[in-house]
Write a protein that binds this DNA or RNA. Structure first.
Length: 580
DNA sequence: GCCGTTTTCGGCCCGACTGTTTTCAGTCG
């Protein structure tokens, strides 16, 4: 079982216990453990073998014993017994909006409902309205929720959410009653996928602000709304929430709506220690007096903490780091001065080398590596060794034209074949300035096989960077089943860089693995993998992913001074301990 | 069930909104 599968067992346990009516703090403990496993970069099997399970936050004696049983026998008696008591199919009912554990238990006990189809039938038959605490409106709401559940395809990739959010922000910027409006929620924290959009606004006239929000042309349904909070559904099924407070309370509001929930819970605990009750409105003292915060900085300062960047707010150690003055010096977009992975018309790109070079200079890029595909990848009309020699002439010509305004490098994105061999021989690789080795096919191979291919590439001294190491496409294609502990150990040994591919449909490595990589001293390379001049240098989502992984400029070769980067590329043997 | 620069036992965040309620429970974030 992998980390996510073990985490799912505990999430299921928490759901079943909640339907059963167990103590809420026990349930929260299971959820916390599941969350910890989801964000654990190391393979849980390895942590288990090392006897370090209890070092994982939220895992104590009882849960550690359960993981032990799960991993040694593949089953968990406690879970099996629980499923005998509470049907596991009830868990899917929790996904229906406005249906929580209490209602699931009610439907189950009084009507024998155990799945969504049963709930839908009962609602259509008018049976739900007869239950205590239920009425016609609740029944209609549940039918509506089931429909939404069927329609919604879960979380959407950050790239799409970003576009939707910007359009809505533009609209709200034009509302006179709103003096300020900002992104919040998981989009502001820059998670790779987004469930709902969350926005916050400052206004002294919340009723007017909310009315304008509901009048946004894309709104197809108003889910609910007061003067502090309103939620709507846009026409593609995306749900958006807007919170409003007066400007002098904007800081507490923005902090609250940005989350994460786990981060906020920790923050409120710390606030209590300082004698404050923290909410979206204010920090309240015991005597009833209020401290108002117009900015987030004031919120953190009142708790005695430095400002914590949104990307870190996941309760993954940022509170402790802030308390001890050890927050990372996170990488920013302007730090990225080199693009080491892009494509031109020599393979599947849309623009010539000259056009890409010009676009790079416009964007302030100082080093550009042309890395077209090797010919092994049939669909992209990749380059043969002969093509590479021809391409080199063109690169030299363009370099001559641009002079010292831009350093052009010749590289290649070399295919790692399904048998683990590289498309080009070592002799060919040796003439290239930059070698990115990537897997594009055979992503569904068994773990050992696909890992072995990547290890081969990492151990080849000519390979500088492993491109999009896991090969997943967010929301479309699952990543390959790579043994990341083994890959990272090998990369740490050879000093080979792992890529954070900044294409918003990839974001691979993800935040969790990026953080693990820097802990192990592995250099990272952050690249847009641009196929056009429009996307060249658009690294913001990749930078955000890196920031979520606690990455600093010193960890990313693209952020190093030009000469340091060129030295690193030319000298593979001197790559150990590159985090200067 | 987890956790501890006040604690190894007794805590474990806070409020808005809705619908069903004459004062509150459930859900959500």
């Amino acid at each position: 079982m992998n980390n996510l599968q073990v985490a799912d067992v505990f999430t299921n346990i928490a759901d079943l216990l909640e339907i059963k009516g167990e103590n809420i703090y026990k349930i929260l403990a299971y959820r916390k453990a599941a969350e910890s496993l989801n964000s654990l970069a190391q393979d849980v099997n390895e942590v288990w073998r090392d006897g370090k399970l209890k070092d994982v936050p939220g895992i104590g004696k009882a849960i550690s014993d359960k993981i032990d049983e799960l991993l040694s026998t593949g089953k968990l008696g406690f879970f099996e017994k629980l499923k005998q008591e509470v049907p596991i199919s009830l868990v899917e009912l929790l996904h229906v909006p406005d249906v929580g554990p209490k209602k699931v238990a009610l439907f189950w006990h009084s009507l024998g409902i155990t799945d969504v189809a049963g709930l839908e039938a009962a609602a259509k038959a008018g049976q739900l309205r007869t239950l205590p605490g239920m009425g016609e409106k609740s029944e209609a709401k549940i039918l509506n929720g089931i429909e939404a559940l069927h329609k919604r395809s879960g979380r959407i990739p950050i790239g799409r959410a970003w576009v939707e959010a910007q359009a809505l922000l533009d609209y709200l910027h034009g509302v006179p009653a709103i003096s300020r409006v900002e992104l919040a929620g998981s989009l502001r924290r820059m998670r790779s996928t987004i469930g709902d959009l969350d926005l916050v606004a400052a206004s002294t006239d919340p009723a007017v602000a909310m009315a304008a929000f509901k009048n946004y042309p894309q709104v197809i349904q108003v889910m609910g709304g007061g003067e502090a909070k309103t939620s709507v559904e846009l026409y593609r099924g995306l749900r958006v929430q807007l919170w409003v407070q007066p400007p002098e309370r904007f800081g507490t509001l923005w902090q609250y709506a940005t989350g994460s929930k786990e981060h906020n819970v920790r923050l409120r605990e710390l606030a209590l220690d300082k004698g404050y009750s923290l909410s979206e409105q204010h920090m309240a003292r015991a005597d009833g007096s209020e401290l108002l915060c117009a900015s987030e900085e004031e919120v953190y300062a009142a708790i005695g903490l430095p400002y914590i960047p949104p990307e870190l707010r996941e309760d993954r150690g940022e509170i402790e780091a802030a308390r001890s003055g050890r927050l990372p010096n996170l990488i920013t977009l302007p730090d990225i001065q080199a693009e080491l992975h892009c494509h031109t018309t020599w393979s599947d790109g849309s623009y010539s080398i000259r056009e890409m070079a010009e676009a790079a200079m416009v964007r302030g890029i100082k080093v550009l590596a042309i890395t077209d595909h090797s010919h092994g990848l049939g669909i992209t009309h990749g380059l043969s060794p002969d093509d590479l020699r021809q391409q080199k002439l063109e690169i030299d010509q363009v370099q001559k034209e641009v002079g010292d305004r831009l350093v052009l490098l010749q590289g290649a994105e070399v295919e790692i074949h399904t048998d683990g061999s590289l498309e080009f021989s070592d002799e060919v690789l040796a003439i290239l300035d930059v070698v990115i080795a990537s897997v594009h096919t055979g992503l569904r191979q068994p773990r050992e096989q696909v890992t072995g291919r990547l290890l081969n590439a990492v151990r080849n001294p000519h390979v500088d960077i492993i491109g999009h190491p896991l090969g997943g496409l967010i929301g479309e294609r699952e990543p390959a089943d790579v043994d990341m502990d083994a890959l990272m150990a090998a990369a740490a040994e050879s000093g080979t860089a792992l890529e954070i591919n900044a294409d918003p449909s990839r974001l691979d490595l993800n935040d969790i693995y990026a953080r693990r990589a820097i802990e192990l001293g592995i250099p990272l390379s952050l690249n847009r993998d641009a196929h056009s001049i429009e996307t060249l240098g658009q690294d913001e989502f990749g930078v955000a992913t890196a920031r979520r992984g606690w990455v600093e400029p010193r960890h990313v070769i693209n952020a190093w001074p030009v000469q340091a980067l060129l030295d690193w590329l030319r000298n593979p043997s001197g790559r150990l301990n590159t985090h200067k």
